[in-house]
């Protein structure tokens, strides 16, 4: 804590904290308030007498109704959920096994391989989508959920592998050695001892992978074209921005509803998530 005069506490602690919280939360507030303001208020000119962008006295569900009735929003949510869950599961499975191998099996070049996997994570998606588009076309997967389920792991697996590798390294190796002396093969020691100890790490990797695939935009934009195949980020922006007309109400309502699953996942696992990123296992 900051010690000394009261002004020091305000200048070095309270005011920066308030600013920080304001900057972080204001966009969410804006999103929420815009979702519930009627169009009449949203498009009122800034110099009108009763102009008040930060509050509404006539909250409405019309934008949410519009989303579900006039667009495929429900379908987009299901698509996004399916794609995010399946690609996260695939990436976690591969990432856990690869992370374990890189952390624990002392095979030649394990260190360099780990670094190379991390470098693949650094290749920008905006470059990678070009060759991937060719591959998706060759396999005739375009405009199906599988085009994303199979391409998201290109960045999710390196990420999960890297995170899990670090987590496995933090688990005392004596645990595994003890299990192997106790009668477990390496595989059983991994399944019964190491993976249960790594649950916080696996949850963290899973949550981040889920969020990354939920929010992913460029692959979804390139690989999906028909309206009923789209994901939330692409669907909302392509169907609710027509030319230069922004349908602010439904756009913000879509963003609000689209962020709920991620928020739920985070809040549900937040304790594990934090310990996964900061803590290690003590024997």
């Amino acid at each position: 804590m900051i010690e000394g005069a009261v002004w020091r506490k305000w200048v070095f602690y309270n005011i920066p904290l308030i600013l920080f919280v304001f900057v972080l939360l204001f966009p969410f507030y804006w999103m929420i308030i815009t979702s519930f303001r009627p169009d009449g208020e949203l498009y009122r000119p800034w110099n009108a007498v009763n102009y008040n962008p930060f509050w509404t006295n006539n909250p409405t569900f019309e934008h949410i109704e519009y989303l579900f009735e006039e667009t495929n929003f429900g379908r987009w949510m299901l698509n996004t959920m399916f794609i995010a869950v399946v690609s996260t599961l695939i990436s976690l499975f591969c990432g856990v096994l690869a992370g374990y191998a890189l952390a624990r099996l002392n095979f030649p070049w394990a260190g360099s391989l780990g670094t190379m996997i991390f470098i693949t994570y650094l290749v920008p998606q905006t470059l990678l989508f070009i060759p991937l588009a060719q591959i998706i076309r060759n396999f005739e997967l375009g405009d199906t959920p599988w085009s994303l389920i199979l391409t998201y792991p290109t960045f999710l697996i390196p990420f999960c592998t890297w995170l899990m590798m670090g987590y496995f390294k933090a688990i005392p190796k004596e645990l595994e050695e003890c299990a192997r002396i106790d009668g477990a093969s390496r595989w059983k020691a991994m399944v019964y001892i190491i993976i249960p100890c790594a649950v916080p790490g696996i949850l963290s990797a899973g949550i981040i992978a889920f969020t990354l695939s939920w929010n992913e935009f460029i692959y979804a934009l390139v690989f999906l074209s028909s309206p009923d195949q789209k994901t939330v980020p692409v669907g909302v922006t392509s169907e609710l921005i027509r030319g230069d007309v922004f349908f602010w109400g439904p756009l913000m309502a879509g963003a609000l509803l689209g962020s709920i699953p991620v928020a739920v996942v985070y809040s549900f696992f937040v304790e594990h998530y934090v310990s996964g990123l900061t803590g290690s296992v003590k024997g």
């Binding site: 004596e174 003890c178 001892i193 100890c197 024997g283």
Partner: peptide
């Protein structure tokens, strides 16, 4: 084997 850090399965 008994290990220095006990290696109990947490």
């Amino acid at each position: 084997m008994v290990f220095q850090n006990y290696a109990l399965y947490p």
